[in-house]
Amino acid sequence: MRPFTYESPSSVLEATNPGHPDSAFIAGGTTIVDLMKLEVMKPPKVVDLNALPMRGIEMSPDGLRIGALEKMSDTAVHPEVAANYPVISEALLKSASAQIRNMASIGGNLLQRTRCGYFRDVNTPCNKREPGSGCPAIGGENRMHAILGTSSSCVATHASDLAVALVALEASVRLQSGASERLLTLDDFYLLPDGTPHQENQLLPGELITEIRVPRLPWATRSTYLKIRDRESYEFSLTSAAVALDVNGDQIRDARVAVGGVGTKPWNLPEVREALTGKPLTLETFVAAAKLAVAGAVPLKHNAFKIDLVQRTIIRALIKLGGLA
């Protein structure tokens, strides 16, 4: 680990005052301490956010608000979250381990870095870590990598389960830098790699995620997060699906669908949602809609299996929610 100076400011204003352009924020530390040990991150200054007031989980007529410093574990079991948005609770409880969920903040979860082995190994090139150095994953080990949103610069997946659930629910993030605040949908917040995979989101230097806003969606009580992985627990996804379903008798009134493990960002699927809306609640509807998820998929040498697997993941989640099992 490279030397850094440590500060623990007590106000957002102070924390976001750009002192050093390469300074890094720390909340739970589960990403940054790991990456500093690997020397993937070498911030000269680390700013501890834990004295800031960005906490609280509240339900209002507008929907859910989660302070960015809330822990994954507390958010997962919060009664309002569990009752109104099971997909959020399930995505969190299927993430990481109990210890890491006790440490990691919600804001930090959304900003966690990819698990691509080349990104994490400073002895290999990586366009995300060192722009312009190349992407060994494209011709190398790419079983865990993305099939959607990839570019000739980067094929790394986004690792957050929570972000997949939040993108499906059309959540937004509130950002603050100094006295200026803005609200972005999480889908817009994340950037595709294109030729600049080191720019993963729209955060400006010194800018913070202060809270997450999830719109009210009464029928999200019928939602779920299905995560397929190499082992049953404590593993990143091969494919995952965040699905909410609004059913009226044997008709689908509305739906929300996003997938993980397959995209370079949490992958929202409005086209699948549209293909479900107004259709009969049948397996045929599910299969036809899920097919649209992979219309633009570009498989790599080791991950073509994800094209079938992600469709089956969506279909299985829909079967569960639709009571067709």
Binding site: G29, V33, I100, M103
Partner: peptide, 27 residues
């Protein structure tokens, strides 16, 4: 592992289990 993967370093902070290898002492 010293990388937050194995759990061997688990301790309790205020009664909650955490990984001491990914916790800065100052925090």
């Amino acid at each position: 592992c010293d990388r937050g993967t194995c759990g061997a370093c688990t301790v309790h902070l205020d009664g909650r289990r955490v990984l001491s290898c990914l916790t800065l002492a100052v925090m």
